[in-house]
Amino acid sequence: MSAILELKNLSFVYGAGTPFEKKAVDDVSLSIEQGELIGIIGHTGSGKSTLVQMLNGLMKPSQGQVLLGGKNIWENPKKIRDIRFRVGMVFQYPEYQLFEETVYKDIAFGAANKGLTGDELDHAVRRAAEFTGLRPDMLEKSPFDLSGGEKRRAAIAGVIAMNPEVLILDEPTAGLDPMGRELLLSQIIHYHKEKGNTVLLVSHSMEDIARVADRVLVMNRSHLFMLDRTREVFAHGDELEKIGLRVPQVTKIMQALREQGIDLPDSVLTVDEAFDTLSSLLQREGKIW
């Protein structure tokens, strides 16, 4: 395993030199391994969106470096467009970026910009549609005729079709109904497993993060607050609550039970896991058979 993304003392200042000057990201250093699925959490305005936009060169850091595969992405500013194909970025509410006549053409936009043509392009588009669960007949529709959830998936497919080495998703499930969330999340997990690519997921839903992430990056007031394995991060419930975040509800319940003196592990992340732990505990104590 080698580091695919490395941030070195990364800072970003908005409106430098004016009275409105504001540090959005302050001296963040970290490294992300190839193939990891990283969850990014933080309060609104903590700097997480600015941070991820620096990773594909949409924003130029005021200080510090972003290394992609060991090379500074701003080494040659004229080549920054190439970086955007290698680090795919899906913004919040990406459905508002759709513009083509058909879903197919819209998904192909990024890949065609990258330089793919003919069969290669067709393959990339169909594969991306498959990953995001769009049926082949939907590809010929106008993107404006799709439902909200389908639009969202078409927009995500447009980034996946570029086959980026790193995929960044900024709150991909925001505003979707529970079914849509569930579906999209499992598609992301599936994509990550099958491709083995690095995925960064920004989310306000601790449940989602707890379910999918290998490691969790916590931002607080422009600073890197924590970066650790998901289980370790959510074991620090008190600290997270102090900075306005919370742990998944089930984790909180299990911690409360543990405080009551019940013998449970200190960080349970999902409902399934809680069910297994509790039922084996009850079995051991002979309460159920």
Binding site: N56, R84, F91, Q97
Partner: peptide, 16 residues
């Protein structure tokens, strides 16, 4: 603001 956001999103898809 909306224009800005859309521009960023299309740039992220390699729009030149």
């Amino acid at each position: 603001e909306e224009t800005d956001k859309i521009m960023q999103a299309q740039k992220a898809r390699g729009a030149d």
